[in-house]
Write a protein that binds this DNA or RNA. Structure first.
Lengths: 215, 215
DNA sequence: AATCTGTTGACTGTTGACAGTCGGCATCGG
DNA sequence: CCGATGCCGACTGTCAACAGTCAACAGATT
């Protein structure tokens, strides 16, 4: 009588689900920078035990989304203007490597078309702010993935949370930064195939974004 | 009757100490890649509870030193030759940024002298392998710190464990890689002040190291 | 009034125990 | 001989409870 063939079960642990929930809550601004994250309160709210929440919180701490204050209590981390600029410098270095690798790769064309799709999504979703941010993050993540360097992707993802909070916190008035028009030149430069110029274009993109977001 | 004035107490938690102990055990090769790290065994060996060990292990997992295998059991992660090359490409990108920042900084001279000291330490300690590796790591970490970009330092440190295991695992016959002679050119290039050349020198250093270690 | 001293409440740090899952072995039926 | 089934041991996942620490407050002592 089964209408659906049996599908594989969800094997995710409570810790993983708690982690996702908390990460989303923080990076979407549900908790503002400086807010206190009490283990007991979160555990109660999520319906899991303190230990489980603790592990998730420690993970977020390592991601830089949360920072310990007095007596080990965790707060949502606030990033200063300087740190934001630094963050985007590091991004530029990492994604710059990605660009150089993509240009040097034999599958540059397929990479370019994939990136163009990602750029198109940026404009499709520009009405819903969160979806827009997601699309922006997806573009840059794709850039890293297309480089074929898995360590690069890993390193970038370690910064992803910080990037997301920054954009979420200060980017609402700066949605132009995430428009397709601002990203297309990067792809164009990759297609053109001159590594030096492409890296420059990317660098400018990052500097402009950092300046606006660090305001 | 106190011969010493009272000094501040050690406030580190068991988790932190367990983390240090485990990280050292893994990065120093006490556990070899592929070895199974059972929570109960480690807890017994360290004399702490499983929960405490768990948190430390999760941290190492995020650092990339251990990786989950079947049924959530953790093993010491083994890095393939490809991953080692990728890792050193990312290092090169990050430390390349550091070099550019140092050159652009007004305190380049003091940075250079600090780096020269670090290079000197490399040769002082070349007899004890572990101390030698420590000195090498210290040099590159210092490079990041002198850049003044805290995010850069953070990102680099996320890779530190991976780098250390790689060097520890395959670097014993390749100690020349860590000699002062191999590092001095980097500092020289920074002192000379031409960013392009300096980054090239660093890149070569990294490529050479990667090639030897990925053998 | 100023200062020292318990006390209380709100946290995190740490632990031991319970529950669930899986691989491997023995067992049983063909 | 071979496959299915049921048990056993070794794990991790999860939880509830205990212990320790600190800030803030109230009260006692000068």
């Amino acid at each position: 009588m089964a209408t659906e063939p049996l599908t594989s079960l969800d094997r995710s642990t409570l810790r993983e689900r708690a982690l996702d929930a908390l990460r989303y809550a923080v990076t979407s601004g549900q908790y503002r920078p400086g807010d206190h994250l009490g283990e007991v309160e979160l555990a109660g709210r999520l319906g899991v035990s303190r230990g489980t929440v603790r592990e998730a919180l420690r993970h977020l701490q390592q991601e830089g989304l949360v920072t310990p204050s007095a007596r080990g209590m965790l707060r949502v981390r606030a990033y200063t203007s300087t740190e934001i600029r630094e963050l985007f410098q590091v991004r530029a270095a990492l994604e710059g490597l990605a660009v150089r690798l993509i240009i040097a790769s034999p599958q540059r064309d397929t990479a370019v078309t994939a990136l163009r799709h990602a750029v198109a999504r940026l404009d499709e979703r520009h009405r819903d702010f969160i979806a827009h941010v997601d699309a922006d993050m997806a573009f840059h993540l794709l850039l890293c993935e297309l480089s074929g360097n898995s360590m690069l992707t890993t390193s970038w993802q370690q910064l992803a949370g910080r990037i997301r909070t920054t954009v979420m916190a200060r980017g609402e008035e700066q949605t132009t930064l995430m428009s397709g028009g601002y990203h297309a030149p990067i792809v164009d430069a990759i297609e053109a195939g001159d590594a030096g110029t492409a890296v420059d274009v990317l660098q400018q993109h990052m500097e402009r974004a950092a300046e606006r977001l660090a305001a």
